[in-house]
Amino acid sequence: MRYAICFTPPMSDPLSAVAASWLGRSVYSGEAVEFPSVGALSVSEIAFHTAVPRRFGFHAMIMAPFRLAPETDEGQLLKALMHFTTAETPLTVERMELARISQCWGLVPHVPFHAMHLLAARVIEAFDRFRAPLSEEEIERTDPDRLTAPQFSNLHRWGDPFVMDEYRFHLKLTGLLSAAAERRLETPLRELFEPRLAEPLVVDSLALFVEQDARAPMRVHSQHPLGKISARPRGDRARRPTERRPKVDPLPRTVAPLPTPR
């Protein structure tokens, strides 16, 4: 089993519901969700272009999937995550936008989100002790020859090339696309997501994701609100989500390329 620490909006968030529909899978239950009707795109086109992000679900990666170090266990990881999140405070991204991320489409902050960058670095430092060292096979899967010197250093120090100064907060919506596919998907994606981006995005929890078996879909194991328990609304505690089928009402700027996504 592997674990990952990510951000994903709660099930009640309209952005979470529409993303689950677009990707065809709930990140909370792992169950399939009916694809939306968007512009001239067929269901098969959406399924094809979302195949890669569908396995991970709608999320912003903070600490990439890792196996537990031999001297640790899931209970210790959960306890550490609960203690960590109570010492943090919620963050707000004033504006998210649809943008190209290398050869993919995804959602990114309109301006650099430095507070999230710092939070991500604190997560990596705090939970590195739970991460088992990468195997030679895992290192090879990252294609180290294509990495920059800082990314290569991150890979060997932290188990992930895209952390610390290389980290970029983003929520991926497609796999790698050809130039023609990028153009074809842009308008439908804007129609579907931009109405949900009018409000700021609140990062008020971290989610522990689990991958039961190699290459299995990842899902939310538990969600951990940021901030002291005494300051939260009643009942707002670290929790395992209970699934409700989201109701989706289908509707419907480009940034500099980020490092190749994981």
Results as ranks from 00 to 15, higher is better:
residue 229 I to R: 12
residue 130 F to W: 06
residue 240 R to M: 13
residue 81 L to D: 06
residue 142 T to E: 10
residue 172 K to A: 14
residue 64 A to C: 07
residue 85 T to G: 03
residue 11 M to W: 00
residue 169 F to V: 07
residue 180 A to Y: 02
residue 173 L to Q: 10
residue 250 P to D: 06
residue 73 D to F: 04
residue 218 M to N: 00
residue 8 T to S: 14
residue 70 P to S: 12
residue 94 E to F: 08
residue 110 H to P: 02
residue 160 D to A: 12
residue 246 P to S: 05
residue 32 A to D: 14
residue 9 P to Y: 08
residue 151 Q to W: 04
residue 201 L to D: 01
residue 181 A to P: 00
residue 156 H to S: 07
residue 214 A to N: 10
residue 182 E to T: 09
residue 202 V to E: 05
residue 189 L to Y: 01
residue 115 A to W: 08
residue 200 P to Q: 04
residue 2 R to I: 01
residue 186 E to D: 11
residue 88 E to C: 13
residue 180 A to T: 09
residue 19 A to E: 08
residue 241 P to V: 04
residue 222 S to V: 02
residue 217 P to W: 02
residue 134 L to W: 05
residue 37 S to L: 15
residue 82 M to A: 14
residue 164 M to S: 01
residue 71 E to K: 11
residue 226 L to N: 04
residue 201 L to V: 04
residue 168 R to N: 03
residue 41 L to E: 09
residue 187 T to W: 02
residue 144 P to G: 05
residue 100 R to M: 13
residue 81 L to Y: 08
residue 96 M to D: 02
residue 23 L to G: 03
residue 159 G to W: 04
residue 38 V to P: 00
residue 155 L to P: 03
residue 145 D to H: 09
residue 124 I to D: 01
residue 5 I to N: 00
residue 67 R to H: 14
residue 57 G to I: 05
residue 66 F to Y: 06
residue 215 R to T: 12
residue 155 L to K: 02
residue 123 V to H: 11
residue 260 T to E: 08
residue 244 R to F: 07
residue 6 C to P: 00
residue 96 M to G: 06
residue 135 S to C: 09
residue 77 L to A: 09
residue 75 G to V: 01
residue 68 L to I: 09
residue 176 L to H: 08
